[in-house]
Computed example of a mutant assay.
Amino acid sequence: MNRQSMLPATARAVRVVAHRGASHEHPEHTLAAYRQAIADGADALECDVRLTADHKLVCVHDRRVERTSDGRGVVSEMTYAELSALDFGAWKGAGHAGARVLLFEDLLREALAAPRPVGLAVETKHPTRAGGRLEAELVRMLGEYGLADGSTGRVEVMSFSRNALVRTHRLAPGLPTVFLIEHRVRPVRPPYATHAGPGIDLVRRDPGLVARLKAKGLSVRVWTVDEPQDVELCVRLGVDTIITNRPKQVREQLEAR
């Protein structure tokens, strides 16, 4: 164990990752949300990725588009052109109307163009009709930008699916992977996972989970942490990364400590 890992949580830097961008203020997965997150000091940008019917990698959380757009349909059954015709901003309010579906490549370029190093935490969504093609396309895209070997430390891949993590490792052994946990309390380290991502509800119910995960050699990213008392809990437990819809407020709270 190195010296840094033994320091109290208040003495260590806690990473702040913007969940779908600064999504409390802007529609999730939009350039406005991600640009705001960068301006707010987020260390990394979290996104969900799916494949369209014509194999474009897009940033959309839900299987269907009804919640976040003015359209109807299943993402995997729609072409990129069909998705581009929808408004992905109006649901957040009139002031956000006109936002279009975001290509993962455009988000990647935005992160790389930031005035300081900004990482990406990419969740591959399963189950999906794309199956393993989703991870294959993601790794291919990262390879085009020299990010697939993990040497830059700019990208990590997350999933609730163990199979997805195994596929990612086989395609890009150097990429860090995060095993997301929503309901499972007993920590079991899946093959190739380097980080664990429990939800804040789970951490509240079982605070000792963080220590047990760390004992298995996993660093811990907790989602989605928006309330000040939950930020304090995460710091007290020694969480390494906080994933939040409110990156500015969380960053300010951490700096105030």
Rank of each mutant, 00 (worst) to 15 (best):
Y34L: 01
G146T: 05
N163Y: 13
R116T: 13
R167A: 07
V17I: 15
P115N: 00
G95L: 15
L107F: 06
L138R: 01
M78P: 03
R20P: 02
A215E: 15
V178E: 05
P247C: 13
V225C: 07
R50S: 10
L103V: 02
V139Q: 04
W91Q: 14
V210Q: 02
A44F: 12
R64N: 08
S151G: 04
S23P: 06
A39G: 13
L237Q: 08
R3I: 13
A113S: 12
Y145V: 06
K216S: 13
I243S: 07
L102H: 06
T52A: 07
M6D: 10
A37N: 06
T241M: 14
R236W: 00
L120R: 01
W91T: 07
R72P: 01
A81D: 15
A114I: 12
I200M: 01
A121V: 10
A113C: 09
A111W: 11
P115F: 15
A33H: 00
F179P: 00
E137H: 14
G131W: 15
A53K: 15
L51F: 08
T152P: 01
E182W: 04
R63A: 09
V225Y: 13
K56G: 02
L218S: 09
R204N: 10
S84T: 08
G98T: 09
G143S: 07
L83Y: 12
C47E: 08
